[in-house]
Computed example of a mutant assay.
Amino acid sequence: MTKGKDKRRRVTLECTICIQNTTKKSPGIYRYVTQKNPKNTRDLLELRKFCPICQKHTLHLELTI
Rank of each mutant, 00 (worst) to 15 (best):
K24M: 07
D6A: 05
K7T: 04
T23Y: 05
R31K: 11
C51K: 10
Y30P: 04
G4Q: 04
L63N: 05
K24D: 07
T64Y: 01
T23H: 10
E14T: 09
T22L: 02
L44K: 15
N40F: 07
G28T: 07
Y30C: 08
Q55H: 06
K36S: 06
K7H: 04
Q35P: 01
P27M: 01
I19L: 10
Q35R: 10
T22W: 00
V11S: 12
T58M: 14
K56Q: 15
T12A: 15
K7S: 03
H60N: 14
S26F: 00
L63W: 03
N37Y: 03
L63Y: 05
T58F: 13
N21D: 14
L45I: 11
L44G: 15
K5H: 10
Y30M: 05
C18F: 00
L47R: 15
K3H: 13
K56Y: 12
E14G: 10
I65N: 14
Q20M: 05
R31G: 01
Y32F: 06
L44A: 13
T23P: 01
R42M: 03
G4F: 06
N37D: 07
P27A: 01
T16R: 09
D6Y: 03
T16H: 00
D43L: 05
R42H: 09
K36G: 05
E14A: 12
K39V: 00
K39F: 02
K24N: 06
R10N: 07
L45V: 11
G28L: 07
L63K: 08
K49Q: 15
R10L: 08
G28M: 12
T34P: 03
H57D: 11
T34A: 12
E62Q: 09
P38L: 10
T23G: 04
H57R: 11
L13A: 06
K39S: 10
Q55D: 11
P27L: 04
V33L: 05
R8H: 07
K3N: 15
F50P: 12
N37W: 03
T22S: 05
Q55A: 02
L63V: 05
R8T: 00
S26H: 00
H60G: 13
P38C: 09
Y32S: 10
L44V: 06
L45H: 14
N21F: 07
C15T: 12
R10Q: 08
N40V: 11
E14H: 09
L45T: 08
T16F: 02
I65R: 08
K7R: 11
C15F: 02
K56N: 13
C54N: 06
R10E: 03
K3L: 10
S26I: 00
R48V: 00
K3I: 06
E62H: 11
N37M: 06
C54S: 14
L44Q: 15
T12P: 13
I53R: 00
L44W: 11
L13T: 11
P52H: 14
S26D: 01
M1N: 07
E62T: 04
R42E: 10
I29C: 14
T22E: 11
L47N: 10
G28I: 04
K49H: 08
T12M: 15
